[in-house]
Amino acid sequence: MSDATDTGREVLQTEAAALSVLADNLPPDFDAVVDLIATLPGRVIVTGIGKSGHIARKIAATLASTGTPALFVHPAEASHGDMGMISGDDAVLMLSNSGEAVELRDIIEHTRRFGVPLIGLSSRPLSTLMRAADHHLTIPALPEACGIGMVPTTSTTLTLALGDALAVALLRRRKFRPEDFGVFHPGGKLGAQMARVEKLMHTKVPTVSPDTPMPDALLTMTAGGFGIGAVVADGVLRGIITDGDLRRNMANLMDRTAGDVATRDPLTVPPDMLAAKALAILNERKISVLIVCDGDVPVGILHIHDLLRAGVA
């Protein structure tokens, strides 16, 4: 085993042990902070400098993507005009391991002057930040994992994890659902998985009536290009014809009608179903296409290839 592997394992074990300490000693103000943010009329302004600033950006992004309006404000830019981004309806979540970063003082003074709630997150409860703050999220002052006690490692891990804990606690408080998550993630893999069937379905459904002769039904199915035909009467889906139905009814097929050959009460999905759930149904039933119905009315066709091309899998 290499020295690098030993070092990597040591760092991870140090940070994992620190997270266990934090879990056993969650800041007493944690509940109060969740209550404050959950009832906040404005946004959570997250700020920090250096490595804490990088963590602050991530926390702001996580909050915003899970239903809590949040914004990162750079403390140096705030001192040169961006202080206007902080309103009286907001709360400031300020990150600083030491609690003494001079770049943060203008924002601290701004919150005190205008009565903006200030949440301090630091490992030093007697620091300038924590003495000024209305709410205190104190993380354990544990050794950094670097071995020289100077590189932000354990402290940034604890800060990031506490930010995640806040975001998830708020998510559950708001009863945030997967479909709500999809609203904030319209692109990429998450966006595809959160897409609705109606976004991916084909709206031109190859349709025949129950008394359509099978030669004509076959022409309709072929023109549709999905290997399927919807049997519809009075605008209501009465059955479907698939390639499997054709094989099972080869005897005198051309002398029969669509209603004779169709599978009655077929499996359908609604247009507002999540695409990921529709894919699970296709995989479970080992089929490649579904009729999409609004009530009993066929409104589209969903093919597994559409889901795969969209990146739902």
Results as ranks from 00 to 15, higher is better:
Ala4His: 11
Glu10Trp: 09
Gln13Cys: 10
Leu22Arg: 06
Asp24Trp: 02
Asp24His: 11
Asp24Ser: 11
Asn25Pro: 00
Val34Asn: 07
Asp35Ser: 09
Thr39Asn: 11
Thr39Arg: 15
Thr39Tyr: 13
Thr47Trp: 07
Ser52Met: 10
His54Met: 13
Ile55Asn: 15
Ala56Thr: 05
Ala56Phe: 01
Ala64Thr: 00
Ser65Arg: 09
Ser65Asn: 10
Ala70Ile: 07
Leu71Pro: 02
Ser79Phe: 03
Gly84Met: 10
Gly84Val: 15
Ser87Phe: 11
Ser87Ile: 09
Gly88Val: 15
Ala91Lys: 14
Leu95Lys: 01
Ser96Val: 03
Asn97Tyr: 08
Asn97Cys: 05
Asn97Trp: 00
Glu100Ser: 03
Arg105His: 06
Arg105Tyr: 15
Ile107Val: 12
Ile108Phe: 01
Val116Trp: 00
Leu118Tyr: 04
Leu118His: 07
Leu121Ile: 00
Ser122Pro: 13
Ser127Asp: 07
Thr128Ala: 14
Met130Gly: 06
Arg131Val: 13
Asp134Phe: 02
His135Met: 07
His136Asp: 04
Pro140Met: 08
Pro143Gly: 01
Ala145Thr: 09
Cys146Ile: 08
Gly149Asp: 05
Val151His: 11
Pro152Gln: 14
Thr154Cys: 05
Leu158Met: 15
Ala165Phe: 03
Ala165Lys: 03
Leu170Asp: 08
Leu170Arg: 06
Lys175Thr: 10
Phe176Cys: 13
Phe176Asn: 07
Asp180Val: 00
Asp180Phe: 06
Phe181Met: 05
Phe181Glu: 02
Phe184Tyr: 14
Pro186Leu: 14
Pro186His: 09
Pro186Cys: 14
Leu190Lys: 06
Leu190His: 00
Glu198Arg: 14
Leu200Met: 11
Val205Glu: 15
Ser209Gln: 15
Ser209Gly: 15
Met214Glu: 12
Met214Cys: 01
Pro215Thr: 04
Leu219Arg: 09
Met221Val: 13
Phe226Glu: 07
Ile228His: 12
Val232Trp: 14
Asp234Met: 08
Gly239Phe: 03
Ile240Pro: 02
Arg248Gly: 04
Ala258Asp: 10
Gly259Asn: 11
Val261Tyr: 07
Val269Glu: 00
Pro270Cys: 04
Pro270Val: 04
Ala275Gly: 03
Ala278Ser: 08
Asn283Met: 02
Ser288Val: 04
Val289Ala: 14
Val289Lys: 11
Val292Cys: 08
Cys293Arg: 05
Gly295Trp: 12
Gly300Arg: 01
His303Gln: 15
Arg309Thr: 04
Ala310Met: 07
Ala310Asn: 00
